[in-house]
Every structure is written in structure tokens, then in C-alpha cells.
Design a protein around this nucleic acid. Structure first.
Lengths: 217, 217
DNA sequence: ATATTTTTTTAGATTTGTCTAAACTTATAG
DNA sequence: CTATAAGTTTAGACAAATCTAAAAAAATAT
């Protein structure tokens, strides 16, 4: 069983691994986890001793099979708690991350199975991210960035790839929330901004925003 | 804001204070918290520096006003989570203590207010213990031990003063659960065991058991 | 190919919470 | 009222996770 801190490292390494085939760098971890590179090196050695990561000096780390399992479990717990906070306690989607960050470390497996059942086995968290099932299996449906669509394309908002409060509050304000149907009405050539219709209203989003919204066609 | 460990000490000191007017002894804390007296002395000094306890060498500790507030807050969180686990996730009353022990340290006050609301502001936890309100106020209804009743007395089972799994499972098995109506039909003089009728059945409980069941007449 | 910059690691210190062993206080028994 | 026992504290050490400063390796630039 891992400590609170070890779990945080595993989770961060897992998230950083998703963007790359190659090993995760010490500095990248340090930045994400708000600590110094030297501390990361120390922890990496500890995780390597426990066979949770493969590590060669100066070469960064990769999760082992068992490290990956542990990480996915943490992600599962985090996302289930986010669903609970939004669906049952009426938190907004931009308010839940920090609380889930604490709740994810509660260890009882029985608790998580029952929570999953209580929430009716949700497949996605409030940001559209998939929730691993109890065997660690992830729904591998891949969504398309709104910025990749063409004029006339229709789709459903399924998630976001940027999780900051400012961004989520902005989406909330302009009405771009999970599950809504959209249709692209125009794409401005020179700045890539997108005009779309949603619930019979026309709104305009910048290319920056469009890149962070995930769509199912 | 206190650490996980400091919170545990405050909680234990609070519980031990309930049984006595005088200061709580180092050894008593050590026994409850599964640690050594020397460690307790160290932590007590830290809590005293933070003005959470009053401490004079060799004289034990008492919670200060602010220490007591902190402790009551932890108790509130613990008991609310116990209600959640039993009412919403269908845990049995003897299964929830350890999980609530972890959940009670999640810090967000907003979370607790919303949880309280979600549970419809329960007044008691699954063992009948009162839940402090958000101002720390405790319902001061005092219940009577079943062992104090006389033949013919009627009452409702409101709680238990012993929380071990074995005991709770035993009560569950013989049907003595929260909220049920009972009537004393006979008290055996020589061993103090109590015969009572509950839901038209006659059952017999030892004096030991009777002392740990709390009744509202 | 060498110099410079970036990244990573090491060495040694610090903090938090714990421990053992010994010393000290207070309580209890004769 | 002294001797012994019980309870508590101190001193010094340890493990976990962190840090700073300096050394070492790898990447980049001239």
C-alpha cells in the first residue's frame, strides 16, 4: 500500500505519460507536483525500489504494470468522487477538483465499489473524462477537439482537455456544458475562431477555447 | 489548520474528557492512540504551543476553548460521514468506523455543510451519538442505560455506549437496532440480566449488554 | 569539438512524528 | 515517612519527505 505522497507521484507520472511515448522527466514531475527536482529524484528512487516505476539515472521514469494499476485506481477514485460532489452535493464542475484531490486517497476498496454503485456506475466524470472500471479498464472512445470540426458539422459536448477554474467558469457562462448539442455555423479563417449554434443561440468561441472542448460526432 | 495527526490527538483528548472533570492523562492518550507515552508528551507540547490544550508538566491536559471547537468539528465530520456510509452506501453500523476515521480529516468546510444538507441534517449517527451542528452545538438529550430501567418500563433504543464490531454485530443478530421500541418484562436479581419484549418477541440480554444500550423513555 | 546551458543527481540539513532508555515526579503501601 | 511502584518527561536517535547548494551528466550552440 502506498503513502499519500507516493500516490500523488504515481498519479502525476500517469497523467504525464499520456502525452508521450517516452519516459517522464524529473523536472516535468517537479513542476506539476509543486516541488524541487531533488525531491523528485528521491521519491523516484523509492518508487523504483517498490517496482512501481522503471528508472535509469538521467533517463526519467516509466510506470511499471503495477505502478500503472495503482495510478489508474487513484484516477478512478478521483473521478468517482467528482461525480458524487457534482451530482449529489450540487457542487459546480469547477469547484470539485481540490476536494476530490483529498478524497481520492481514502483507501477502502469496498467504499469505492459502493460509491460506484450508488452513482449508478458513471462512465465519465463531470469534465467528460472517462472513469476506469474496477478492473482498471478505460473506455477508449476518443473525442475530437471542437477546433478540428468543419462548418456544418454537428456534435455533442463530451468533455474538456483544460481543467482550470477560469476556463470552466467561462464555459458555464456562455452555456457550453456537458451533453449539449452544437453545430458549427462558421469558422473565421484568419484567427480560427468558431461560430456555433447551441440551443438556438449563436455564440462565438476563440480557437484557444475550441481546442479545449471535446466533441462526439 | 491542524495536521491529520494533531486532529487525531484532539479527538481522543475530547473523548477522554467526556468521562471526567479532571485533566486527561498522558498514558490514557497513549493507549487510545496506539503509541508510546513519550510520543504523547511530544505532541502535547506542540498542541500547547498552538493553544489548543492547557498543559502543566505531570498534570495531564485539558482542551482549551479553541481546542474543543476543533475537536467537536472533527466529531461532526466523523458522524456525518458515518450517516452517509450507512444511509446512502448501505454499510452496516459496525463497518463504518474505520472508513469515517479517514474521511473525517477531509478539510473543506463547504463539503461538510453540503453533506449535512444532502443527509437532511441528521441529529444522530448510526450508533445514536449526537451530531454537533455547524456551530458546534450538541443536542444535550441524555439517554438512560437499559440496565437502569425497572420491570415494566418502556422505551426506544437510541444508541450504544460501546462501539466494537463484535458488540454491534451481536445487537444486530438479536434484533436490537436503533429506533426500536422495547419493554422490560423481568430483571433477574442474581446476575442482573434483563428480559425484554421487542416486536412481540421475548429476548434476554446480559447485564453487560444492558449497560451499553441507551434508551429514551 | 569544445563551451555553454539545461537537466539531473548527490550530499547534507530540516521538519514532523515516532521510538527506546534513562531520569525524574507523583502516588501508594507498608 | 520512607520505599516501591506507577506515570511522565527528557535526551538522543530514526524514518519520511522535503530543501539548498554543489557536482555531474546530457543536450545544445558555436
Amino acid at each position: 500500500m502506498q503513502s499519500f505522497t507516493e500516490e500523488n507521484y504515481l498519479k502525476i507520472i500517469y497523467h504525464l505519460s499520456l502525452n508521450t511515448e517516452s519516459a517522464v522527466q524529473t523536472n516535468a514531475i517537479a513542476e506539476r507536483i509543486q516541488t524541487k527536482a531533488a525531491s523528485v529524484t528521491d521519491m523516484i528512487k523509492k518508487l523504483a525500489d517498490k517496482k512501481l516505476v522503471d528508472y535509469k539515472k538521467y533517463q526519467g521514469v516509466k510506470l511499471t504494470e503495477s505502478g500503472k494499476n495503482a495510478a489508474i485506481n487513484i484516477v478512478r477514485r478521483h473521478r468517482l468522487w467528482e461525480v458524487f460532489l457534482v451530482e449529489k452535493l450540487n457542487f459546480k464542475w469547477d469547484e470539485v477538483h481540490d476536494i476530490a484531490e483529498e478524497l481520492e486517497h481514502i483507501k477502502s476498496p469496498e467504499l469505492i465499489e459502493r460509491l460506484d454503485e450508488f452513482l449508478a456506475f458513471p462512465r465519465n466524470d463531470p469534465h467528460g473524462d472517462p472513469i476506469p472500471d474496477k478492473n482498471g479498464k478505460l473506455d477508449n472512445t476518443v473525442f475530437i477537439k471542437l477546433s478540428k470540426l468543419k462548418t456544418g458539422d454537428k456534435g455533442l459536448i463530451m468533455g474538456v482537455s483544460e481543467h482550470s477554474s477560469v476556463f470552466l467558469q467561462h464555459l458555464e457562462k456562455i452555456g457550453l456544458t456537458l451533453g449539449k448539442q452544437i453545430r458549427i455555423t462558421e469558422i473565421t479563417d484568419f484567427d480560427g475562431s468558431v461560430e456555433l449554434s447551441i440551443e438556438n443561440k449563436q455564440i462565438n468561441v476563440s480557437r484557444e477555447v475550441a481546442k479545449s472542448i471535446l466533441i462526439k460526432i
